[in-house]
């Protein structure tokens, strides 16, 4: 609209052009500027690639760490399912008492399987597996207690439910000590928590660096285009019109950097796959490493675009204002 002259036609704002066409022109102009910015990156491949590379690698590091943490979680979730409760019976419990306990316990709804290992069986097994063999026959008496191994049903394998079950089992008369092998799991979990926080810290630092790098790159772009910006201001370009190509440049840096990070992560996973398989096979386990799923990929790309935009926005708001025709 013209402020000084009422009724003066001004391009897309002209009253002769309908709302639809105006909207269409708005999008066409945006598309034109977006493509122009992409073209500009294309014309300076070396400089653009370096900036995209910095961005891509900065995002690769936290992404890889994220995958690492996620896979560790997946593995430890598998361990959690196998949680088992060992009940050590008192010395004075006879074999008959033990058998009746096993029978009673096997009726509990929380319990899936009950296995009774007598002190003799345990000693035999220990002799075979430990390698102490003959040394053990010098013992006067069997130091091992009778043990009942309990596997909870799948509903009761979570650390909390298993703990409740253990408390209930300890109330049984024949039970001396009960052991839920979950403490080490809790330790793994707290380690994972630290790792997760570490990923967040490293990611924030790198993201901050990315914003600064993009901001500085855009600042140099703005200085290179000083003359053009001056002329545009002289012929009546609004600030947002002048800002737009630089914001699109930031957008493209972000998107291309994000895609590069994705590509690098794929290569890293492919590279590490064989060594991970070798490691997993030692445990007779088939283990497929999970990469970035669609949601994580979208978040990564979105974040990368956001960082590019943030960097260029900061730079544009600071530096375009400084260029005024004299």
């Amino acid at each position: 609209m013209s402020i000084l002259f009422k009724g003066r036609d001004q391009g897309a704002q002209s009253s002769r052009i309908g709302v639809f066409q105006r909207l269409q022109m708005f999008f066409i102009s945006h598309l034109r500027q977006a493509l122009a910015s992409l073209g500009e990156l294309w014309r300076q491949p070396a400089a653009s690639l370096m900036t995209i590379g910095v961005l891509g690698l900065s995002i690769t590091l936290p992404s890889t760490l994220y995958i690492l943490v996620k896979n560790t979680e997946a593995v430890s979730a598998g361990w959690e399912q196998a949680s088992e409760i060992s009940l050590f019976l008192r010395d004075d419990v006879t074999a008959a008492d033990a058998n009746s306990l096993v029978t009673r316990l096997s009726l509990w709804s929380e319990i899936d399987t009950v296995v009774y290992v007598s002190a003799e069986q345990a000693l035999d097994e220990f002799k075979q597996l430990s390698g102490f063999g003959d040394a053990l026959s010098y013992l006067d008496s069997n130091p091992l207690p009778d043990v009942v191994l309990i596997t909870p049903t799948s509903k009761h394998t979570s650390p909390l439910a298993a703990q409740l079950l253990l408390d209930k089992l300890l109330k049984e008369r024949e039970v001396d000590i009960g052991k839920l092998d979950i403490e080490w799991l809790e330790r793994v979990y707290s380690l994972l928590n630290i790792a997760r926080e570490l990923v967040a810290i490293i990611a924030s630092l790198l993201f901050f660096a990315v914003v600064l790098i993009i901001g500085n790159t855009i600042r140099l772009n703005i200085l290179n285009k000083r003359d053009e910006i001056l002329v545009m201001k002289l012929v009546g370009a609004t600030d947002s019109f002048i800002h737009r190509p630089f914001l699109y440049t930031g957008f493209w840096y972000g998107l291309l950097g994000g895609l590069m990070a994705w590509f690098v992560v794929l290569i890293l996973l492919w590279w590490m796959d064989s060594s991970i398989q070798a490691f997993a096979s030692q445990y007779q386990k088939q283990f497929d490493i999970t990469g970035l799923d669609a949601a994580a990929l979208l978040i990564m790309l979105g974040l990368s675009v956001l960082l590019g935009l943030a960097g260029s926005m900061i730079s544009v708001h600071r530096h375009v204002k400084e260029i005024e025709p004299q």
């Binding site: 609209m1 013209s2 402020i3 000084l4 002259f5 003066r8 001004q10 001056l230 002329v231 201001k233 002289l234 012929v235 009546g236 370009a237 609004t238 600030d239 019109f241």
Partner: peptide
């Protein structure tokens, strides 16, 4: 910016 659209300006140094 909108004021400058109403004024055609010509400079000695062209500003091309």
């Amino acid at each position: 910016a909108f004021i400058r659209r109403d004024i055609g300006m010509i400079f000695q140094s062209h500003q091309l």
